[in-house]
Nucleic acid binder design. Sequence first.
DNA 1: CACTCTCATTAGCCGTTATTATTGAGAAAT
DNA 2: ATTTCTCAATAATAACGGCTAATGAGAGTG
Lengths: 159, 159
Amino acid sequence: MNKVKALLASSPLKQYGRPLEVGLHQEGRRLTPQRRKILDLFENSGSGNHLSAEDVHHLLLEAKSRVSLATIYRTLRLLVEMGFLYELELSEGGHRFELASNDHPDHHHLVCVRCGRTEEFENEQVIQAGRIAAEKNGFKLIESTLNVRALCPGCQHNN
Amino acid sequence: MNKVKALLASSPLKQYGRPLEVGLHQEGRRLTPQRRKILDLFENSGSGNHLSAEDVHHLLLEAKSRVSLATIYRTLRLLVEMGFLYELELSEGGHRFELASNDHPDHHHLVCVRCGRTEEFENEQVIQAGRIAAEKNGFKLIESTLNVRALCPGCQHNN
DNA sequence: CACTCTCATTAGCCGTTATTATTGAGAAAT
DNA sequence: ATTTCTCAATAATAACGGCTAATGAGAGTG
């Protein structure tokens, strides 16, 4: 019975939820609903979406969340500085932003539940499975991620 | 541009991380390290594990986390009340507990990012993919879940 | 237009204190 | 043997106040 510690280590998967908050706090900044909403907008739109400040403004407006343009500009700059967004400069003037983390749209994680070691991998069959499940239920696919919980070699041995 | 609300609804996926904490707080209860550890024990042991109070006590002890038996009994009862655990009564006297949510060991979610509607499905290919990824990296598989983010039929249409 | 700045107002976060749920140890019950 | 109870000690939260980051509105800039 030496997988005990492994069982205890609180699942590393959980950290996926909080990086904006901790990132902000580390720098003495604050997590505001506006910042949350703006980042959520990108995170929920899946990868590959590139939005302008105006786009963000309108999207939020239509969703009954008025956020001032000034704040949107400020927040977009902030999120780029923090590495959450990429900034694309269009030659015609005007900037677009897109999620930085989603450069691998359908990537999957192999996570050691004990030490948190994580390997990424891709697998066409998995993507396919997500596509099929979506189709079967009439859903429009955005993206899919497979989380595999496991024990890494090191944690299996040196108890 | 009518997937607006969908993009805003903070991803239902995120709630997977916090349900114990929010559940407790809603009822005026407190999230203690002991409660967290006991639930983690079940969550990280994968599905199908059925443990007695004594088992939990010993497992925690071996992991250098002493939690009194009284607390373990109290917490197990609490987690059952809250729906996190199932309680199995053995005829020979003595109860066993197991994770309630993991009744489908390798189940996958199709989640509407807008309304949160969730469909479960299973897929052998996905399980296979997890198994292969684990093997390739020398990991010992515990379980895998595929999260497919999508828009449900309703949310695609009535904007 | 596409974006930044100014400034009064708002509100997030960090201490601290006060409240009370929870724990641990052991006795008691079943 | 398995589970519950008692009660003093502990510690998680709620509550409050102060500090100051962040917002919104609108003017300003190129």
